[in-house]
Design a protein around this nucleic acid. Structure first.
Lengths: 166, 166
DNA sequence: CTATAACTTGGAGTCGACTCCAAGTCAATA
DNA sequence: TATTGACTTGGAGTCGACTCCAAGTTATAG
């Protein structure tokens, strides 16, 4: 019976927290497929679109640029991704990114906690500064360490070299 | 006679992973204090500056705009923050932000895991859509394995409803 | 019948954060 | 002496992601 409830752009904006303008923009850049129109030209959205918009806003939080989201949206609307091994790789790799972002964030939390508890020392919060390819030898003993933050956070992936575009 | 080792801008860039241009830019917008110059006008950096730059790049990962970093940098270079109760509040509030960002990221990880394990369903990944901010689920129910990253991250506070400025 | 509201369109403008450039200085080297 | 390389400066350009605008359409209310 309930033949898919539909929503106006305003309702959709309210439900997703994404502005109407932005939703139109996403359509403009083909991040969202062209929405159906009513006879008067007004856009029509249904739950599935809202889901997609929510996934976008979710991915945004991971710092992913809009352009890179398309494959993920494909996974989301299409069937299961196992059919697209390429996509599976993408998912895995983004997953690693996020996990390492979480580690970074956790470091900042630790930094803050440290500051709050004993506003005294300083240090930590580095991670994966690319080095090695510098001809200019940096004979730095680097006494700094990950301190404060337990290594456990890094056990997972510790960076693929991809810096989060946050 | 260990008189604080100094670095060129290039060395500093290498050590921090932040480009020379960007470092100069940070100085231009007064995010970094004007670096000392040698007689020939070249900038001189010391460990303390590198620490600051690293803190900036750390805060960047939390999605904080450069403009908002100044108070944090003050905390970092000055003495302990307990003297500036205003700052303490700031730290606390940013901490909350980060923790809730971590939660968001974890949701994406879960989404991906779900997709990877059984490319089938969809759902989740919302959080704080303005519209009756009465949702506080996500205390720990989650049937899905939080995978890889332990729930320990959430043990701390788990969000106040402050939206991350990502 | 008008006016208000909710939409449509294409395109221009904004903003943050770089990133690049040209022109110049200075030191060491071929 | 001429070139190279590492730097300096101010300013312009780029890029992503919006955000705003003007002009137009349609629907409903007074």
């Amino acid at each position: 019976m309930k033949e898919a409830q539909t929503f106006t752009i305003k309702q959709t904006a309210n439900q997703t927290g994404i502005s109407e303008d932005t939703i139109r923009y996403y359509e403009k850049i083909a991040l969202l497929r062209r929405a159906e129109r009513k006879d008067n030209g007004h856009r029509i959205y249904r739950q599935e679109d809202i889901d997609t918009i929510q996934l976008i806003s979710c991915l945004k939080k991971t710092g992913m640029p809009l352009d890179e989201m398309r494959p993920f949206l494909a996974v989301s609307t299409d069937a299961d991704p196992a059919e697209y091994p390429e996509l599976v790789e993408l998912l895995r790799s983004h997953r690693e990114n996020i996990v390492s972002q979480i580690a970074s964030l956790q470091q900042v939390v630790d930094f803050i906690d440290m500051k709050l508890e004993n506003g005294r020392y300083r240090r930590d919060c580095s991670e994966e500064i690319q080095d090695g390819m510098s001809e200019d030898r940096m004979e730095e003993p680097k006494p700094k360490s990950v301190s404060t933050v337990q290594m456990s956070y890094f056990s997972v992936s510790a960076g693929t070299g991809k810096s989060p575009t946050l």
